[in-house]
Design a protein around this nucleic acid. Structure first.
Lengths: 128, 128
DNA sequence: GTCCAGCGGTTTCATTTTGAAACCATTCAT
DNA sequence: ATGAATGGTTTCAAAATGAAACCGCTGGAC
C-alpha cells in the first residue's frame, strides 16, 4: 500500500473524483501496465472497487470502499505537508478547503480530551 | 519521499526513538545499502539530519528536523489506519497513546471552525 | 597497547520491479 | 459501417532492490 510510488497517488486522485482508467493514466502519467497492476492490487486489498460507470456507458469505474475512504486523513496529512514543503516560496500551489467556507481544512492530532499534542507527547503501547 | 517502500518507515522509527543505523537496520530488516541510500536522501531532503550521538560516543545519530517533525500527522494517520485494517480481529496490535492519560490519540480533519468533516465536504482549490 | 567485536557504511552482482511501446478486443460516436 | 477512444495485456530494456562480502574506524576487555 504505502510500499510503492503510485498507490497512494491513485487513491488521492480517486478522492478528487477521478474514477476512470484513462483519466488516472493521463493525470498521473504512469505506464498503463503499472496502473492496471496497482488498481488490481487496490481492489484486492478492498480499498477500491469496480462499479458500473455513472454516465450510463458500459465501462466500469473505480470507487473507494469504506476502508478506502478511511484513508482520508492520510491523504489530507500528506497533501498538507506537500503543500507546505514541496513548493517554492512563490510557486502557485493548491490547498484543500472545506466546501462551506472555502477555507483550508485543519488536521489535528489530539489526546483523548481534545487537546492538541506533538510527537513528544505520544508513544506506542501494546494493546490486546 | 512517499515514492518508496522504506522512507516513511524509517521516519516512523525515528519518531519512535530509533536513531542509530544498526538499530534501524535490525528493526526494519532492510539491506544496509538501501538503508544508507534512503538515509542519504532523507538528509538531502532536509527531513533528517545527522547529529552527534547522545551517549558520548564518536558515532552520529539521525534526528528529525523541523520539516521532518511536521510529518507527525502523516505518521499518525498511517499508523491509525494500519492499526484498524492491517490486523486480524484478535491479533495483538499496538496503539499510539498520549503520555498523560495513556489513551489512544485522536486525529481529526476539521473545517476552519473546528467542525469535523469527511472527504465529501472538501475539495482542492488553486491558491496563489 | 593489542586484539577483537560492533558500527556504519560501500561494492559487486543477481533478481525483481518498473516503464515504454506495441498490440488487442470491446465500446462509443458519427 | 467505420474510426477513434477505452481498458487493458504482452514484450523487452532499463532501473531499483536485495543479499553478501568487504572495509576502515571505534569501543571495550585485557
Amino acid at each position: 500500500m504505502i510500499g510503492d510510488r503510485w498507490s497512494l497517488l491513485i487513491v488521492r486522485d480517486v478522492f478528487d473524483g477521478i474514477r476512470r482508467f484513462s483519466e488516472l493514466q493521463r493525470n498521473l502519467g504512469l505506464a498503463k501496465n503499472i496502473l492496471a497492476s496497482r488498481l488490481r492490487e487496490l481492489v484486492a486489498q478492498g480499498i477500491l472497487e469496480m462499479v458500473p460507470a455513472t454516465d450510463g456507458s458500459a465501462y466500469q469505474e473505480y470507487a473507494l470502499t469504506a476502508k478506502g475512504r478511511e484513508l482520508f486523513a492520510v491523504i489530507v496529512a500528506l497533501r498538507k505537508w506537500g503543500e507546505a514543503h514541496l513548493f517554492e516560496e512563490d510557486e502557485p500551489r493548491s490547498a484543500l478547503v472545506d466546501i462551506e467556507n472555502e477555507l483550508p481544512v485543519r488536521l489535528q492530532v489530539t489526546d483523548a480530551t481534545g487537546r492538541p499534542i506533538s510527537s513528544g507527547e505520544a508513544f506506542v503501547r501494546k494493546v490486546s
